[in-house]
Amino acid sequence: MTKNVPAIRAEHLVKTFGDLEVLSDISLEVAKGEVVCVLGPSGSGKSTLLRCLNWLSPPTSGTVWIGDEMLGMERDANGTPRPLGDARLRRQRSRIGMVFQSFNLWPHRTAIGNVMEGPMIVRGLSKNEARERAEVLLDRVGLQDKATSYPAKLSGGQQQRVAIARALAMEPEILLFDEPTSALDPELVGEVLDVMQALAEQRTTMIVVTHEIGFASEAADRIVFMDEGSIIEEGAPADFLSSPREQRSRQFLDRYLKRTSFTSFASC
């Protein structure tokens, strides 16, 4: 593998649900160690894009590559693509970590049990190895003292940090975040963003769908702005946030800034 192969590359992704085209011809490359934040109004297809990127919801057409391996598809002897067998798809998926908006922790497992599950079941680690790894990760997200708590006993912010540790436990090459702070109470957003910020500083390859423009401006190497299923504009955070080129980006940012100034005014 050469050094300039991107960590993940999507080519001409199209996703339709019935007559509705949710993604229209999306192409995106993310380099190793790069942090990309995807912004855009709700319904713009951001979440669908993430779900296509790990084949949880296979795109109608288009291809995704992780490293130099095609995701979810293979070519037969004649070169025609066909869906990949389940076992191989699962191995590929385990290379992509995903953090969900609604945490999706398993309520019948403790915090540490949630983190150990994947390495044990999918990677075949022994219980002790999995526990060691999980302890390190819980420590990294600042929850070593909550290891034996069940999800129901954790705050939303704590649950999401466990979910991040759970994703990290698979040692994924890329981490996908699907609006990780949208389901949290405002006062809990910070602790999750701090963990993500730390990951970004350690050069973890990340694609983050978010509404937290503050986080995007600080942590992202690149911002991708989506609307109506297409990428409208992309660029460095400083450029994009101060001088967006496209009309729709400007509108989105204007509306967003107005809303935040209103909330900050209201909270005075």
């Binding site: 699962r90 590929q92 998926r93 969900f100 609604s102 999706n104 398993w106 759970r166």
Partner: peptide, 15 residues
Amino acid sequence: PEGQIEAARAMGMST
């Protein structure tokens, strides 16, 4: 919840 199953799938667990 469907999300829990997705989280398991995203991790590469088999059916």
